[in-house]
Computed example of a mutant assay.
Amino acid sequence: MDRLENANQLFSWAEQQKLNSLQLQQASEHVPLQPAIDDWLAHANRVLLFGSVLLLSSAVIFFFAYNWPLMHYFSKLSLAAAAVVVSGTVAIFCPVHSQWQRAALLGCSLFTGALLALIGQTYQTGADVWQLFASWAVLITPLVLLSKSRGSYLLWFCLLELALWLYVETNQMFWLLERAEPLLQMALANLLLHLFCLFALPKMLPSNTKPLLWLSAVALLIPLTFGAMVGVWDNQYQANLVCYLFIAAALAFWYFRMQRDLFIFALLLFSAIGLATAALARLLETDDFFFIANLLAVFVIGSSASAAVWLKKLMQEPNHAA
């Protein structure tokens, strides 16, 4: 897989305008840019291995769910703890940083969550649901760092997001939009996660970290944009609007000038279109509804089409031909 990693590095440099099309073509004479049959087989083996781990973990969890009334609580806990111990033992005896070790650590992380759920259900601790996901994320953190696996990091990110969303919903009635702080807190927390993916994660993972970076960008922009759009109408959300302007401007500068990433830049561009549409609707709220609806439709279609054309031109630039 080293060939694919080298090719991915070359494409990344080309996207960041560190290589032009001629330099990339010259590099292709020494580093193949297309995967060979062996690379496809290796990738298929990895997909099948991690898929089997996910299916096996799901089977164990559903086994407990289906046989819950028929099993003694000691048997449930013993079997779940045994699954954690067995997967952890397999990881210890596997070659370091091998696919088998990463798969075993992912399985151990999943079984840890099942064990925590069993403990909470058996002893009725009274904890909120968000505490289960938060505890799960904390406990598997050493396993995730040790695994150096995108699959384990993806699980960790999902647990952190679930814990954050459930915490906000449980304590501040997030979906009723009674207060502006929950959206702002979620946006700032996801900003920290995005900065972690941008600066720290590439040093921890040997393989491509772009998918995790893109995922964190989506998680950041959803509450950030939504809070800013509400802030156009509600003065209580002015802080959300101000944070959006500063954070979006900084990210747009970074991903367009410093470290070009057209996917994240496109997200920021269409997010700005959404905010501009909300601002235009607020400005024209006293006019005729039919006129407003048609004007907003024309604005959204025109601005989205213009953004798409611009992004296409950026992708077709010589430095982005890769």
Score class of each variant (00 low, 15 high):
M1W: 03
L4M: 14
L4T: 09
Q9D: 12
Q9K: 04
Q9M: 11
E15D: 14
N20F: 00
A27E: 04
E29Q: 10
L33E: 02
L33R: 07
A36T: 14
I37Q: 11
W40I: 03
A42F: 07
N45R: 13
N45V: 03
S52D: 05
S52A: 15
L54H: 06
L55A: 08
F63T: 06
F64Q: 05
F64R: 09
P69G: 00
M71K: 10
H72N: 14
Y73E: 15
Y73T: 13
F74C: 13
S75C: 11
L77T: 04
A82M: 15
V86E: 06
A91Y: 04
V96R: 14
A103V: 06
A103P: 01
L105K: 02
L106V: 08
L106A: 06
G107W: 00
C108N: 14
F111P: 01
F111M: 09
G113W: 07
L115E: 03
L118C: 02
L118S: 13
T122S: 14
Q124T: 02
T125Y: 08
T125A: 07
G126W: 07
D128V: 01
V129T: 04
L132K: 00
A134R: 10
S135F: 10
L139C: 08
V144I: 04
C158T: 15
L159E: 00
A163C: 11
L164E: 01
W165G: 05
Y167M: 06
N171H: 11
M173G: 05
R179N: 09
A180Y: 12
E181M: 15
E181Q: 12
P182C: 07
L184H: 01
L184I: 09
L192A: 15
L193Q: 07
H194R: 08
H194A: 09
L195E: 08
F196H: 11
C197Y: 12
L201V: 11
P206A: 09
N208W: 13
P211E: 01
W214Q: 04
W214S: 04
S216D: 07
L220M: 04
F226Y: 12
G231L: 02
W233N: 03
W233D: 14
Q236C: 06
A239F: 13
A239P: 01
Y244G: 00
L245C: 02
L245A: 09
F246C: 05
I247D: 04
A248C: 06
A249M: 08
A249K: 07
L251P: 04
A252V: 00
F253Y: 15
W254K: 11
Y255F: 15
Q259F: 14
I264D: 01
L268C: 02
F270T: 02
A272H: 02
A276L: 11
A278W: 00
A278L: 03
A278S: 14
L280C: 10
L280K: 07
A281Q: 00
R282L: 10
L283K: 09
D287I: 12
F290P: 02
F290S: 15
I292L: 15
A293P: 00
V300H: 02
S304P: 00
S306L: 14
S306D: 04
A308F: 12
V309D: 10
K312G: 13
K312I: 05
K312M: 07
K313T: 12
K313E: 11
M315W: 06
E317C: 14
A322W: 09
